[in-house]
Amino acid sequence: MNPHDDFHELDRQECLRLLQRAPIGRIVHTRHALPAVLPVNFCLDNDSAVLLHTSADSELAAAVDGVVVAFEADEVDVTTHSGWSVVVTGCATVVTDPAEHARLSLSVPRPWVAVREEVFIRIESELVTGRQLIGGRTLYGADLSS
């Protein structure tokens, strides 16, 4: 038995469907020429763009506006050794249009910390990839689920 049979790649639509049910993700960007990863709450806009809600004066808003970033969310069940991971890669921009800002204020989750002036960051889903591990694992015929 091939030990990788339980892994399979997800298509774009399945990745986006799974993202819709994840409450927390991680944005990956560059900070001082090194990778930085921050956990964030998020939602999808128009079923494809990732939207974040943060402080206008945050380091994150300044660091990602106009640059390519990665966003990752996952779900793992350690009991059944199953789960999925989805990565969205694309250009991040701070939403500056007042009408768009007003629309997003009604639907995007609130930041977990209080902010004085809020901004929305949109990550376009230029590349969407994902993998899923289904139902436990075996290695060369041995059951490793316990």
Rank of each mutant, 00 (worst) to 15 (best):
S82K: 09
A92G: 12
D97P: 03
A62W: 04
W84G: 12
T93G: 06
T93A: 13
H81I: 14
D77V: 08
V88S: 03
G83I: 06
A63Y: 00
T79R: 13
D65E: 05
S82G: 13
V67F: 11
V64C: 08
T79L: 11
V67Q: 04
V88G: 08
F71L: 06
V88F: 05
D77C: 02
V78Y: 15
V94E: 09
V94F: 09
E72G: 02
V69W: 09
E72A: 09
E72N: 07
F71K: 14
T89N: 02
F71C: 10
A63F: 04
C91F: 14
V94H: 00
T96N: 08
V87Y: 06
V95M: 06
A73D: 03
G83D: 05
T96I: 09
V88T: 13
T79F: 13
E72M: 00
S85N: 01
E75W: 10
A73W: 08
T93D: 13
V69D: 05
V86W: 02
T89V: 15
V94T: 15
V87R: 03
V88A: 09
T96E: 14
G83L: 07
T80C: 03
C91A: 12
W84L: 01
D74K: 02
H81P: 06
E72Q: 14
V69L: 05
G66I: 03
D77E: 06
G66W: 02
A70R: 10
E72V: 11
G66N: 04
G90L: 11
T79D: 14
E72K: 04
G90K: 01
G66Y: 04
T79P: 02
A62V: 01
V78E: 06
D65K: 02
T80F: 06
V67P: 00
V88N: 05
D74W: 07
D65Q: 03
V68M: 08
V95D: 00
S82F: 13
V86S: 15
G66Q: 04
A92Y: 01
V95R: 01
T80E: 10
A62Q: 10
V86Q: 03
H81M: 13
V86M: 02
T89H: 07
F71Q: 04
T96H: 09
A63Q: 14
